[in-house]
Design a protein around this nucleic acid. Structure first.
Length: 205
DNA sequence: GCAATGATGCACT
DNA sequence: GTGCATCATTGCG
């Protein structure tokens, strides 16, 4: 096993593709966080796509604001925001500069640094509960808005590495969750992707 | 096991 | 002031 200094890091071109392609391709890849001299890593098992100004579930559909600015920028940049006053959400910007789109990382399978993740999560958490939701994984990985606008292609602080590739049968799709405010058509599209039968996929409400 | 609820910060009419 | 791309806790059984 090589240390993480190899060039497995996913580059800008990985994210400069159609958002659905990226959302699907991110399944099975490694999310890596370097924090206080320690390495935390997880395998991505669930994602959601938010695509463009016409997607009423996408934050950018109301236009370009201070909050959504990074979504309009370069692919391969982290879009991190706070929701419900409590939870951070990690997205990676996709497509071309000027077109607002991103992939939300919804769940990972903890691979390295589980003890540190556990310290950041409530004491009663099971292994599954460390990272089986978008807010939970951000807390476990120490990800907050300070990383908003961070380039994840540099291999520092926060980045993604190539993992295993998955066959089609391992991937499931369905509607996105938590977007009751969006237009019915946008609520129906199956822009959520997950690894079938994986225990770290977030519980659906 | 499940449903209901409160927490909490910030962007934006 | 309103409403979130959620989660932990409580109260049930």
């Amino acid at each position: 096993m090589f240390p993480s200094a190899t060039n497995n890091i996913l580059g800008r071109e990985f994210f400069a593709r159609p958002t659905l392609t990226v959302a699907r391709a991110l399944l099975g890849q490694r999310l890596v966080r370097q924090l206080n001299g320690e390495l935390l890593a997880g395998r991505i098992v669930e994602t959601e796509a938010y695509i463009g100004p016409d997607d009423t579930a996408c934050h950018a559909h109301k236009g370009r604001t201070a909050r959504t600015e990074v979504m309009f920028g370069s692919p391969g940049v982290a879009y991190v925001y706070l929701i419900y006053g409590i939870h951070s959400m990690l997205n990676i910007v996709t497509e071309q500069v000027g077109f607002p789109a991103a992939v939300l990382i919804r769940a990972v399978d903890p691979l390295e640094g589980q003890e540190t993740m556990r310290q950041r999560r409530p004491p009663a958490s099971t292994l599954r509960q460390l990272t089986n939701g978008p807010g939970k994984l951000c807390q476990a990985f120490g990800i907050d808005r300070r990383l908003n606008g961070w380039e994840v292609t540099k291999g520092q602080q926060l980045w993604l590495e190539a993992g295993q590739s998955l066959s089609e049968v391992e991937v499931a799709t369905g509607p996105r969750v938590g977007i009751t405010y969006a237009d019915p058509a946008d609520r129906q599209v199956t822009w959520r992707f997950w690894i079938q039968d994986n225990e770290f996929v977030s519980p659906t409400r």
